[in-house]
Design a protein around this nucleic acid. Structure first.
Length: 502
RNA sequence: GCCCUCAUCGUCUAGUCUGGCCUAGGACACGGGCCUUUCAAGCCCGCGACAGGGGUUCGAAUCCCCUUGAGGGCACCA
């Protein structure tokens, strides 16, 4: 890269939650800035008053912070190139829109939305390509004066060159050439006084001294229009790269905001949904960094520092991609297993309060919780999966089908005998901890001629009431002698009834 | 309809720019096995792709052309 200081921006529109595709765009820009020791700018493109959602900004900032994509300039942090909200930069846009009109690069258009709709309807009827027919571009001074006299409001449109071609150099796709005749006179300034994206992004990128634009592929068609606006201003256009789109899981269509559009498969579209689904920040970061970019030919798991060091636009893939959700689960499991117990415990608490009916305080103070977390750490892929596994420790009693207490290839009576022997041993056990429990129960297996699985499955049902549970000895130890024995004795009663019935 | 982009295992990808090291590598998922108190984790094995057709070349996943397929755009939205 050149010696100039890199300045990139992520410029979302505050219309809702942060979309995962937007997050990936932000992530690439952030990686690029950090790699080059440059500046990552957050700019809010709030020029569409119709789609404006009041809470969207806070959702946006929250999700970016959750992903730990810190911005050097922008909302709440300021900077020397502000304001960073386009709605606060209207004077600038007006000034330069007027400049374009004065220099014959733009013109006032008096067409009403109704007239434009009619025009489009007719184009469709005649099978013509849709697009503004430039009727106001050729207004005579008299006609213009007449429109003004009517008191009609106007917008400002750009005068596209009518002939020739415009070539844009895309950092990941190379040259892309367009016929200027296929470009229509786009709107720069709307009748409500707000600029369109086309005008605002050019002016802001210029005055914010943006050096590289990385935005989604859907903007390719706009690139020549933007290039032409830069040219009209006589400004140098930043280098530009269009990132591959993120597709629906089916691989058809860009990932939309509508959910569960692909059968039964789970489709997470907003960053918030990933957070709520129990994914970790670093795992989502790692996951997104691998969509459209890759660390090397064999490394799947890497830290953000490693990604920063390695990131290079040259290695961005140009093809659109569907999100590999199953890989997200696998990756998250890896990150979970890498966490220290206290850290994991803390991360888990918000996901446990509701299902376990405990307050955050109760859980934070419960010294059994870290022990349980240690037992399940390598068994969960999402934070949301923990509750079901450790629920047995947070209920007064466990419920299950008594027939489950009959071990494979044993009769009810034989199972009962095994259970009674285990109870006898546990009652006599001086140290009620995992190691001692394992030793005493394994010796029972050895002495009784039972299979380990036969005895342990009986105990697992009695202790946890679950077919799938954390490791048995640890589970018994966490419950403590009193509770564990109470559950075993209840199982004894249940088995006794089964024996009596047969 | 017009313009533009893209095209390697089911999916994410490496390789493509700078042809030969590619009988195409890795990962997830899937199938099988080992380990094992359930479930996981871990380890081993397997399945599985250069969209098709023409060129260029001693040699093409890689360069060129065509076809096909997929996607994006064509708003007083971004």
């Amino acid at each position: 890269m050149s010696k100039e200081k890199v300045r990139v921006r992520f410029a979302p529109s505050p219309t809702g939650y942060l979309h995962i595709g937007g997050a990936r765009t932000a992530l690439f820009n952030w990686l690029f800035a950090r790699h080059h020791g440059g500046t990552f700018i957050l700019r809010i493109e709030d020029t569409d008053r119709k789609r404006y959602v009041p809470d969207a900004l806070s959702y946006l900032l929250e999700s970016l912070r959750w992903l730990e994509l810190d911005w050097d300039e922008g909302p709440e942090v300021g900077g020397d190139y502000g304001p960073y909200f386009q709605s606060q930069r209207l004077e600038l846009y007006h000034k330069w829109a007027d400049w374009l009109v004065e220099h014959d690069h733009a013109y006032r258009c008096y067409c009403t939305p109704a007239e434009l709709n009619e025009m489009r309807a007719e184009q469709r009827r005649k099978g013509l390509p849709p697009g503004y027919d430039r009727r106001c571009r050729y207004l005579t001074p008299e006609e213009r004066a007449a429109k003004e006299a009517e008191g009609r409001s106007h917008i400002i449109r750009f005068k596209m060159p009518l002939a020739g071609t415009t070539t844009v150099y895309d950092l990941i796709r190379g040259e892309i050439t367009f016929e200027n005749s296929s470009l229509d006179d786009i709107v720069l300034l709307k009748s409500d006084g707000y600029p369109t994206y086309h005008l605002a992004n050019v002016i802001d990128d210029h005055f914010m001294e943006i050096t590289h634009i990385m935005r989604a592929e859907e903007w390719i068609s706009s690139a020549p229009r933007h290039a032409l606006i830069y040219r009209a201003f006589g400004w140098e256009m930043p280098k530009i790269a269009h990132l591959p789109l993120i597709l629906n899981p089916s691989g058809k269509g860009k990932l939309s905001k509508r959910k569960k559009q692909s059968g039964s498969e789970e489709v997470l579209v907003n960053v918030k949904e990933y957070q709520d689904a129990g994914f970790l920040t670093d795992a989502v970061f790692n996951f997104l960094a691998n969509i459209g970019w890759s660390y090397d030919d064999s490394t799947e798991v890497f830290s953000r520092e490693e990604a920063i060091r390695k990131f290079d636009i040259k290695h961005i893939n140009s093809a659109a991609a569907a999100l590999p959700f199953s890989k997200m689960d696998w990756l998250n499991g890896i990150y979970i297993r890498q966490m220290a117990i206290p850290e994991l415990t803390k991360a888990l608490i918000p996901f446990l309060t509701e299902p376990l009916d405990q307050s955050e305080e109760e859980l934070a103070e419960d010294d059994r919780l870290p022990k349980l977390v240690a037992l399940i750490r390598e068994r969960i892929k999402r934070l949301t999966e923990a509750a079901a596994l450790i629920r047995f420790a947070y209920v007064e009693d466990v419920e299950y089908d008594p027939h489950k207490l009959i071990a494979k290839k044993l009769t009810a009576a034989e199972s009962l005998a095994a259970l009674r022997e285990a109870i006898r041993r546990l009652e006599a056990l001086p140290e009620f901890n995992e190691e001692a429990l394992e030793a005493i129960l394994r010796s029972q297996v050895a002495e009784s001629g039972l299979k380990a699985g036969q005895l342990f499955n009986i105990l697992r049902w009695a202790i946890t009431g679950q077919k799938v549970a954390p490791p048995l000895f640890g589970s018994i130890a966490v419950l403590g002698r009193e509770t564990a024995l109470r559950r075993l004795r209840k199982a004894e009663t249940l088995l006794l009834q089964l024996v009596a019935e047969t």
